[in-house]
Design a protein around this nucleic acid. Structure first.
Lengths: 243, 243
DNA sequence: CTGCAACCTTGCCCTAAGGGCAAGGTCAAG
DNA sequence: CTTGACCTTGCCCTTAGGGCAAGGTTGCAG
């Protein structure tokens, strides 16, 4: 015959927790002593430990209450389901921990690993950090807006970079960022881009517009904003595509 | 420039979650388009993924908000602490899963393993299931009421059972449960118990009373209630101790 | 053009599993 | 006889969102 505090310490919970379990019908109210204190038996301790085991496994209290009334067969199946769910939760927490460590290393995965792998190889071929950052943001938006087709689009772009001429063209685009908007090399570059685009995708479609969406235009707008030269380049390209 | 729904799907959360993060100052409110819709950038997506990583690791949202403003050094240390806590949580869940499986097997651990081990060996020496059940309940109450001294008391009792004469005495106590309260063998047993108790603990102390607490008396009361013969036996023992 | 479904907006209330506090009664020890 | 550690009930508070209402927007189909 123990008090609520002793039972609580024994089970490693607070007295409030025990009272809540009484209110919710999980644990029967014990009898009271002469001064109105609750007096618990060993059976209450056993029940409480079982309840806590389920509660710590993530089973909602209402479910635990129902389970106590369930026949043995259903109870056994329910316990197995709880075990499965718990295992899944542990697995998910482990994955969260992996991502937490990526975050700590500043290497958090925002995109499919084939994309991040590709982006990580770009500095080695001469692209600037600014370009990489722009590409990263761009692909995040593409994957957010077109989850279904983004991977195909990405494969197409990645494949384009394996062509030395196309790669050089993108490198020139990258470097054009700091040119004067009146630099004649911009016109040259615009012509090369239009030609390459036409030969790769046919006339009338900029890469990225293949999805038929207006989103890449918005991206382009943001891209242009960061450099007057790029803005000029965009204008030149549009002019030449229109003719 | 994506909508709240696209951002939500990309990050694997609900739109409500994103709005809550705005309200709590975790994620900056993005600009609105002409019809008042929120329009998010890739940077928002990056921030959101980071926030979710911390949130899923169990960091309270208020803490995450403060962390964003923390200097790099403190941030790094905080991340490490989160990692440690998360690892501890995973470990605890694994332990919960172990206890869940014990529960499924009907073998849940209510007492230190040395005690349960001892109790499991009792049937092999001839004690009845009823006796084991009584001992189990008894030890639960003792460990609940006297966590500090219970282990010592238990060791003493377990050691007593290694003496063949004492063990036989406890076996006789067990079997006395079903005797007629007037059976003369009860007087015999009472004498042996008193003699053994006196020689082991000195005169005047029943085992269990060594803790100086009234609790064992309450236990004894409950024990007696289950059998008229045991009740009679208790009376006989008290009589003889008094003389 | 019109409808319809799927979005978006704010505002409000609801939930689970307790925590915390108040105001009062009880118990054991010095 | 007081003091500190218990116990009692009752009430409000918290976290991280979920759900719903009432209304505005957008895009697509017929």
């Amino acid at each position: 015959m123990i008090t609520i505090g002793q039972l609580a310490r024994y089970a490693g919970v607070s007295t409030k927790t025990i009272r809540v379990y009484h209110d919710k019908g999980l644990l029967p109210e014990p009898s009271r002593d002469s001064s109105g204190y609750r007096r618990y038996t060993a059976q209450h301790a056993i029940d409480l430990i079982k309840i806590r085991t389920l509660a710590e496994a993530g089973v909602p209290l209402a479910r635990i209450r129902d389970l106590k009334a369930a026949p043995g067969e259903e109870f056994r199946r329910a316990l197995h389901q709880v075990d499965v769910d718990l295992t899944a939760r542990i697995q998910k927490l482990r994955q969260t921990r992996r991502r937490l460590r990526q975050l700590a290393a500043g290497q958090i995965q925002m995109l499919p690993s084939e994309v991040t792998g590709h982006l990580q190889r770009l500095p080695g071929v001469g692209f600037s950090p600014r370009w990489i950052a722009m590409e990263t943001g761009l692909w995040i938006l593409v994957f957010a807006t077109h989850p279904d087709t983004a991977a195909d689009l990405f494969h197409d772009q990645a494949q384009a970079l394996t062509d030395p001429a196309l790669r050089q063209m993108y490198l020139d685009y990258d470097r054009a960022h700091d040119l004067d908007p009146t630099d004649p090399r911009l016109g040259d570059l615009a012509r090369r881009i239009v030609a390459a685009t036409n030969s790769r995708y046919g006339p009338g479609d900029l890469p990225g517009q293949v999805t038929g969406s207006a989103i890449p235009a918005l991206i382009q707008e943001a891209v242009n904003a960061s450099s007057p030269a790029w803005q000029r380049l965009d204008t030149l390209i549009r002019d030449q595509l229109r003719t």
